[in-house]
Amino acid sequence: MLYVIVGAGRVGLRTARVLRESGHDVTLIERDEGAVERARAAGFDVLDGDGALEETLESANLAEADAIGALTGDLNDNFVACMIGKQYGCRTVMRIDEDYREEIYRRYASDVDEIIYPERLGAIAAKNALLGGNIRAIADIAQHLQLVEFTITDSAPMKGYSLSELELPADTRLLAHGKSDAPLDVPDPDETLDAGDHLVVLADFDALSDVRSIVVGESGPSKALGGA
């Protein structure tokens, strides 16, 4: 898969890196000379130019690209890059700079398929680090829906039970289960929950603290789990 990333700054370059690590081809577009050199030094194909111009995007082989990530710090440039990308049939991902704008772009920007607000993702990571322990928020799926990973502890009430015996509250689904040393997998109802196992649950915010007390048995401020 070929991906075009506009902006080789802290968000764009990092994204390019993880795409490359997953075996994808990435072309970066960047107009700041210093950033171009840094990205080239890191071994990336970099086009030196303005990613909000069609001719630049054309030379990035946009027609062959699967998706374009408009990840600069400039909202106008990002939006224009997505509009052009859409014309070429690419899936488009746009970085925004303030969280209230997420709603506006979701609603009105029909050329933008996905919106990324890096600070929100950073806040989720920071929250997990602060909470520590056996619960990790993976993502906010929607305003009221969160994806959470729980780790079964020795004191967890569900420890020793099988997955089929696990009864979660309404508005929640068990999506994945993994033994402590194995990758996550589709839940097998016959598996037993041991200490160190991981469970990935999709839950409504209102149900999260119930899920938490059922699975890991801790009571705590459920607010800490709320959206980032």
Binding site: Y100, E102, E103, I104, R107
Partner: peptide
């Protein structure tokens, strides 16, 4: 410039 997503 707004500070809400309620643009409508």
């Amino acid at each position: 410039k707004a500070h809400t997503g309620d643009a409508d």
